[in-house]
Amino acid sequence: MLSSLWSLAAAASFSLMAAIVKLSSGEFGSLELVFYRSVFGMVLMMFLAASQHGSMRTEHFREHMIRSGLGVLSVALWFFTLRDMTLSTNMTLIYTTPLFMAANFIVLAKMKHERAPWAMVASILVGFIGITLILRPEFHEKDFIPGLVCLFISAIDLLVYWQMQKMGKLGEPSWRIVFYFSLLGAIFSFIGQWVFSDGFHYPSPHGALCILGIGVFATLGQIFMTRAYAYGNLLLSSCLGFSAIPFSAIFGYFIFDDPITVMSLIAMSLVLASGVAASVTTKKMEATLVHGKKG
């Protein structure tokens, strides 16, 4: 059940990163922030590898490029959709990845003539209802194309999660997976910042602190998420990923004085309940598998 803790830690880290991005609003462009956080991640992963006497050389370079390429494509398309949609609608559609994951497992179970993990699917549906009540998306005619792109991003993220689990089975350490993703992200954002924007800006003391905070929490989030998906249960990790939304609401309340309504509290309770139910279900499934092997 260690994957539960990794998933929650990833959600908290990404939520803190988002809060710091908001604090730095107006001083940096989106691609500029991606570049800084990617470079920070590369440097930190190299130090981590050195501390463990590890190397960035790998026999699975192709697998790294698939994971990193899909991840960078996902980020690039996400920036495109943010221009034309409200954040609440955008994030609701982005968080449909666990629904794709649940549908994927149902299809796989049917193909193998096995029982589908309906309890986990139910937990994911409850969690999605919870974040929808928190975000309260509004759909308009102009949202059709970017909305389809958001669903495509969710499908890409599903492929990313499967790829990370494949790499975990190949024995690739999480720090190497994060390093190559950060490397490709740094190259993409560096080129994009010069092509689509006006280059890089000299950060103020406040901006430098924000860059440091974004780099720390983005990198930690990537490490935790990679460990959760590469070595843990995919459905459980997907369901617990919903907790990023309640975390964001809580951080928003304490940092930005954002209000938390009664409906938000009810919705957070649904997300919490879905996470607990998914964790209990996973524990029972793992215990059954262990008992079956012993028998």
Rank of each mutant, 00 (worst) to 15 (best):
Y180E: 03
G54C: 01
V290H: 13
A18N: 13
V121L: 10
S237F: 09
S13D: 02
F181W: 14
M45C: 06
A230Q: 02
L184Y: 15
R67W: 10
W162V: 14
V121Q: 07
C150W: 10
N90V: 10
Y202Q: 11
M46S: 14
V121G: 06
F14P: 08
R67C: 11
F254K: 01
V290M: 13
A267I: 06
I106P: 01
S55R: 02
G168I: 07
L183P: 06
L234S: 06
A9D: 02
T282I: 04
S238I: 02
A49K: 09
A278T: 03
A119K: 09
Q193I: 04
S182N: 14
S264Q: 14
L87C: 06
A230Y: 02
N104I: 12
S15F: 01
F251Q: 02
H64R: 08
G275W: 00
A49H: 14
L209S: 08
L135Q: 12
S279A: 14
G215P: 00
S269R: 12
Y202S: 14
I223D: 05
L5V: 13
C239G: 07
A49N: 08
F47D: 09
T92M: 06
S237V: 04
I260M: 05
S25M: 00
F47W: 09
I129R: 08
G241D: 05
G241T: 10
G213E: 03
G292H: 13
C239L: 11
V276H: 09
G199A: 03
Q165S: 09
G192W: 01
A10P: 02
S25G: 05
I20G: 01
E63F: 05
S197R: 01
A155H: 01
L33F: 00
S13I: 02
G130L: 07
V276R: 09
R115D: 06
F179T: 03
P173C: 11
Q163A: 14
V126P: 10
Q163R: 13
P137W: 02
F128L: 10
L82V: 15
W175K: 15
V126D: 11
E114N: 12
K294T: 12
S279Y: 11
M91T: 11
M17W: 00
L70W: 13
M42F: 01
S204W: 00
A116L: 06
S88R: 04
M120H: 06
S51E: 15
K22F: 13
F61N: 04
L265R: 06
G71W: 13
E114L: 12
T226Q: 14
I266R: 05
S68F: 04
